[in-house]
Design a protein around this nucleic acid. Structure first.
Lengths: 205, 205
DNA sequence: GTCTATATTTGGATAGAC
DNA sequence: GTCTATCCAAATATAGAC
């Protein structure tokens, strides 16, 4: 009765495997993170892993689910309301994105995403659906509403959504690459704000 | 005397190894492209590979050199001259980029780049230097000249270069992902032009 | 659920004959 | 330069005892 308070209460071990696997996959990629290393870091033998997961691929796919569970976009409910505020809507989006970019966990996730994106078809599908399409949809809705309210120039909402999102993505990639080599990202930390400024000046009426 | 007319005339086999390796690395990444597979596809035994290359890493590094040898940016010499023409300068840049995006060879190179970017420090360095910095430099120069000639609004050239380049990169990534899964890229083939239109309208005076 | 032991495969690399 | 044969290491995965 008291167990299963959270909807999926896994064995401690299973959870630990997932946690360790996430960390190792993020750091080393799919091939680099061997069952050996995972088991060793969990503190069990390789064979014991197979009591919890069918194979390595199954572990990876469970890990990859978390990549897109992060709040990659504003919640759909208040898009209309927020969009009426124009720049504030975009500002919120940018700041959420910036937060994700500099968050240690999400940084690792993003790294894993980029490593496996070209090697795992299911991951590509997830990326297109849960990252790209989802964000373009939210942004397009926002821009459409702004146009209706004469806050911005009338244009194809899809096109400007693309413009807006792509720069955020590219900044994030840059940050990830630099941090991977422990290089400074100072000059990039203000890029998010500069992007917002440039963009708003470009589209506002 | 008649041999070595091109500066590095390799053995037919060595060239074939490089060609096959390039193709396999692009398709499968570093780990996926095994010496076994390379040798097999070349039509020789694994051991024979080692008559031409010290080890696998040496093959990969020779392959990766080609990634950035492609004309990733406009030639430096005529930047000033072209920039005076304003939009035409950007148009040339975009069209070159579009050409690369849909060129089969460069497509494979880009794929390899994305696969190994997060796993190979030397490649990251090359990416930053030969792709990002180089392009930002060329664009910044161009935008600076345009500002001097009152063709565009006065702004930080670096920032708008970033804005301009990032969208091109993102479109290219999208195209690469879609083509990998043999999906249609029709809706993206005009994105390059739309990007140029949006961007020019945003910055022109 | 975990262990030991082991099967099996794959990959990188070398030695030495031709 | 290529071949056969072989080595070694690492990785995924399974069987069966506890």
């Amino acid at each position: 009765m008291t167990e299963n308070t959270t909807d999926s209460k896994k064995t401690g071990t299973k959870q630990k495997i997932l946690k360790v696997a996430t960390s190792l996959f993020c750091e080393l990629g799919y091939n680099g993170a061997s069952i050996r290393k995972i088991a060793s870091q969990v503190g069990i033998r390789e064979s014991a892993i197979y009591n919890h997961y069918k194979n390595k691929e199954e572990i990876f796919l469970e890990v990859s689910k978390e990549i897109f569970s992060s709040p990659f976009s504003t919640e759909d409910n208040d898009v209309r309301e927020m969009a009426m505020k124009g720049k504030a809507f975009l500002n919120k989006f940018v700041m959420q994105y910036k937060l994700l970019t500099f968050d240690k966990n999400n940084e690792n996730m993003f790294r894993l995403l980029m490593i496996e994106l070209l090697q795992n078809a299911e991951l590509r599908e997830q990326f297109m659906t849960h990252f790209h399409d989802k964000n373009i949809k939210v942004l397009s809705e926002g821009f459409f509403i702004m146009m209706q309210n004469d806050l911005i120039r009338s244009q194809d909402p899809m096109v400007i959504s693309y413009e807006f999102l792509s720069t955020l993505f590219y900044i994030r990639l840059q940050v990830t690459l630099l941090r991977f080599d422990a290089k400074s990202t100072n000059h990039l930390s203000t890029m998010f704000e500069k992007h917002l400024e440039f963009f708003w000046e470009s589209i506002k009426i």
